[in-house]
Design a protein around this nucleic acid. Structure first.
Lengths: 339, 339
DNA sequence: CAGTGAAATGGGAACGCTCCCAAGATGAGG
DNA sequence: CCTCATCTTGGGAGCGTTCCCATTTCACTG
């Protein structure tokens, strides 16, 4: 079915292809009358410009590559949604690539760029990207924005969340509610976010003049199972811990399981706070007090930034955007201040 | 930074662009020695063919449009993952479009086709696509596969699940476990899947010689809230209903909330089954007996089919693939047969 | 009514590739 | 040593646009 081209439109409208192109791109002067006529012909013939031909000469695809560590994890959906909404608004398409947390898959999204399939890349949750790859991207001057990875040495624009501050606020909230012996369940040591949350916890204690006790620090790896185990240890080790700070919600869920099994009531017997505000928690009866990353907003902002970079490629100064975590006041903390 | 083109490679290797093209596409005869040389030069110059230029002449983009009703809903992730895995294997990229359940957004994915950005479209969960649009796609002879929507009149290939059979098996399971008075919570009337599940329920009762009672049929709209309300009604209306069949898991969750509030123990006081096997349920302590759509497999198969259609465009006969639902035996049904 | 500048239009080159066709190289067979 | 088939290579056209430049049209002004 011979596709309609710009020539067909030109012929039908009795003008040259150049004029059609002009109305298509709203560039240059076109007599209003002919403009209307051409528009009418386009509609009549159901003409749509071929994007490949366009890209070939303009060097723009109006497509961005969206890289996600793992498409299966609902955690990333809000980021994607935020990015998508901006994309739609600016008429950008999104090419989806999941990196599977694998360094070896980095070539897959790199190739999108090399083959000029995309104008830039939005790397969501860049925690899994190797340093050498980031340096490579930097040297390539690729339009790219990385979400959820702090890059201090690199000039690449990033969108992040202030984990230190978030954990500080949360810990402080526990302190204000009279808690003094607060166990802390850490995440993986190699994860910046996990370390930062620990730092916030530490700072809050310090500012409250409470001595940090290493014995109250437990280790997990962000899974429900590891939260389960850590919680069992905590309960075994102490009978005067009044609150537990889980550095993500997954581990808090593991904790809840322990409490259920042992008949421990939250928050009457123990107060807990989590971190991340994962969707699954909304299904649980107890509203958890937790911190939320503004994921939608981060995706949204990241995409906006990326498009900005793509569209005025000159005089860019790299931006490092940092959002605050949002404190979500649930019902898993009890005020135990003596009155 | 002047991008490397096929000419640069040709020049450096001392051959013509045609020869380079030949080794690029592994088409036609090329002397093994020159082939190696060209390959080496490509690597040296880090040459990658421009996809727009290629598409312009071949009319193939090696990209497929993946349409999902709502990217925010984790329900669709398994479909996407299945499709993606096939895409990667066959070197297809995926353009992501969410339809937002809105008919008015149909133009957004249509345009991907019209602008020749994609070679075909995989419409996941086509429940939300208007009939007129489907007819349009059919008439356009667009390479398309629709997942999760039964199309009897149309010639478009689909991948579906046998809801009738699934509901039959589940209902039968309840019957085998001694339940006779089984309430049924329906989904929206305009949804094929919901109606089919009702049909399966009906058939099972019929084959078991149990008279269908309209009074045991309750209506919901697949939300947790509607399940909550329906369950309250059921409990109000009857004291001898021993089992409830929720036609999706979301409504079953609503039911669980009622039971918790009223101190009703599942499965001791009442047996329940759901349908869909949504991820959130894994976080709940009670393993629900439910039906699972093989979502990963459906996405996988749909994508395979689509690529097959795209790649040998001739003599296609439309396929209608139907998977069985998988029965997931949880712990929410009690055997109450008199012994 | 000639002259002028702006508005409107057309034509051609270029984008980077594939593909067809023609031509040169090679080698076997007589 | 010539012939012919096969392998190998090069050149040119064409894919559907955009964009630059040249040309035509037009409305005014003096």
């Amino acid at each position: 079915m011979g596709k309609i081209t710009i020539f067909d439109v030109a012929k039908e409208a009795g003008v040259s292809k150049s004029t059609v192109s002009r109305v298509l791109n709203e560039k240059g002067n076109v007599n209003e009358k002919t403009r209307r006529k051409i528009l009418k012909v386009m509609e009549k013939l159901n003409y749509h410009p071929n994007s490949s031909a366009r890209s070939l000469v303009t060097k723009k695809t109006h497509t961005i590559g969206l890289v996600v560590p793992n498409i299966i994890d609902p955690f990333f959906l809000q980021f994607i949604k935020g990015a998508e909404d901006v994309g739609i608004k600016n008429e950008y398409n999104m090419m989806l690539v999941s990196s599977n947390w694998q360094v070896k898959d980095e070539w897959r999204y790199l190739r999108l760029l090399e083959e000029d399939r995309v104008d830039g890349i939005l790397l969501i949750s860049g925690r899994n990207i190797s340093d050498s790859y980031i340096e490579f991207l930097e040297s390539e001057k690729t339009p790219i924005v990385i979400i959820d990875r702090v890059l201090e040495k690199n000039i690449i624009p990033t969108v992040n969340v202030d984990n230190v501050n978030g954990a500080y606020i949360t810990t402080n909230y526990l302190l204000e509610n009279g808690h003094r012996k607060i166990a802390f369940v850490m995440g993986p040591n190699n994860m910046q976010a996990a370390l930062n949350r620990y730092e916030g916890y530490k700072n809050a204690l310090y500012d409250y003049n409470i001595k940090l006790s290493d014995e109250l620090i437990y280790h997990g790896n962000f899974t429900k199972e590891s939260g389960y185990q850590a919680t069992q240890k905590i309960i075994n080790d102490w009978d005067d811990v009044t609150a537990i700070f889980y550095s993500n919600d997954g581990m808090a869920l593991g904790g809840l399981k322990v409490f259920k099994e042992k008949g421990i009531i939250v928050p009457d017997d123990i107060s807990i706070v989590g971190c991340d505000n994962i969707r699954e928690l909304s299904l649980i009866d107890l509203p958890l007090t937790t911190l939320s990353q503004p994921r939608y907003k981060m995706g949204y902002t990241g995409m906006e930034l990326l498009i900005k970079i793509i569209e005025n490629n000159d005089n860019i100064y790299p931006e490092k955007i940092v959002f605050n975590m949002e404190f979500i006041n649930g019902q898993s903390v009890k005020n135990i201040s003596a009155r």
